[in-house]
């Protein structure tokens, strides 16, 4: 029986869709039959991030309204045989589906996949309610900024109130240089403030932008962010993988240098 995981954040632009794509691909590369579902009605993007935008025929709303069968709407990715995408609709609005319909769809497809990843839209309105309906677990994506952390806290409260107990944090776009000079919150700061388990940390990495430009993933490639996503996937699979301290404590020399430069 598959596990339904919703990827959410509250705030937009923190990396939900990129995270959904990379974790989905990482799990598929690990041999798990995985489906990624875009629930952002009217603003679909997961297909673009994955480079599959030209292959869409039917979408989530077609499946739910009975306009097509699930198999007709699913897009297989030639590069990853275990991966399936169910794209969102670009022309419908949030009210085109209901949480009950989402729950029913997920119950129907749960047996066919090992992992079902739901890419949640930004905000806490109808789209959010649709996305979390039927999820057993969540990944809350945030960046080390006041606004993103604030929204993450609100989202975690709503997830807990809706009965989703397993909520884990993914901190995206950490910049080691800024953390070191005291201009960005550390992983420990963010984790302590939000008080939920940490699933992983993704460093701010140009490779994400470059890969996304080309409709490709970073997971499975030789990059800091790719390796970080791979470790996250292994944690999701139940392996015990350490979260490396990417903001490694300063060595003796650096500390002396800072002392003299007055920082």
């Amino acid at each position: 029986m598959g596990e339904v995981i919703v990827i959410t954040s509250g705030k937009g632009g923190v990396g939900k869709t990129t995270t959904t794509a990379n974790i989905g691909i990482g799990l598929a590369l690990a041999g798990k039959k995985t489906i990624v579902i875009d629930t952002d009605l009217g603003l679909r993007n997961l297909d673009v991030v994955m480079g599959l935008e030209n292959r869409i025929v039917y979408n989530l709303v077609d499946v739910i309204s009975g306009g097509c069968r699930l198999k007709q709407a699913l897009i297989r990715d030639q590069r990853y045989p275990e991966l399936y995408l169910l794209p969102s609709a670009q022309t419908k609005d949030k009210s085109a589906i209901s949480p009950e319909q989402m729950r029913k769809l997920l119950a129907e497809i749960k047996d066919e996949f090992d992992y079902i990843l739901i890419d949640c839209p930004a905000g806490i309105e109808q789209g959010f309610k649709n996305a979390i309906a039927g999820a057993e677990r969540s990944i809350v994506v945030t960046t080390p900024e006041v606004s993103a952390i604030r929204d993450a806290d609100r989202i975690i409260g709503l997830l807990e109130a809706s009965g989703i107990q397993k909520n884990e944090l993914l901190i995206n776009r950490i910049r080691v240089d800024m953390v070191r000079r005291g201009d960005m919150m550390t992983v420990e700061d963010v984790t302590e403030i939000l008080a939920i388990d940490l699933l992983g940390v993704i460093p701010d990495d140009e490779q994400v932008v470059i890969a996304t430009n080309q409709g490709e993933a970073v997971v499975g490639t030789d990059s800091l962010s790719g390796e970080a996503y791979e470790r996250i996937c292994r944690r999701i699979l139940g392996e015990k993988v350490d979260i490396p301290d990417i903001c490694c404590p300063e060595g003796f020399l650096e500390r002396i240098k800072h002392l003299f430069s007055g920082k």
Partner: peptide, 22 residues
């Protein structure tokens, strides 16, 4: 010596979360 901006950010977020939560 200027205040690291993180200290301000942390103070702001902690206050913000309390007022949000209540």
């Amino acid at each position: 010596m200027s205040v690291p901006s993180v200290r301000i950010a942390k103070e702001r977020i902690v206050n913000l979360l309390v007022t949000d939560r209540l």
